[in-house]
Amino acid sequence: MLEVFKDLIAYFKERKKMWLLPIVLILVFIGLIMIFGLVTGLTPFIYPFF
């Protein structure tokens, strides 16, 4: 987990897009909550989100 975040920070630095980091943290947090049981179910196939 830590390695990925290190990579991600290095990636955003390289791409000069550090402003995306807070969004990542919020969304990953929400995502993790969802993994633990709030939302289940299949989603239809839409390219861009995959």
């Binding site: 990636y11 969304l27 990953v28 995502g31 861009p48």
Partner: peptide, 24 residues
């Protein structure tokens, strides 16, 4: 992932529920 985030940011609040479905 960068594209997904920027796309989400550009459309917020629209797309929040769709985005959250894919986040897990």
């Amino acid at each position: 992932f960068e594209r997904l985030l920027e796309n989400f940011y550009a459309n917020v609040p629209k797309g929040l529920s769709a985005f959250l479905k894919f986040m897990p």
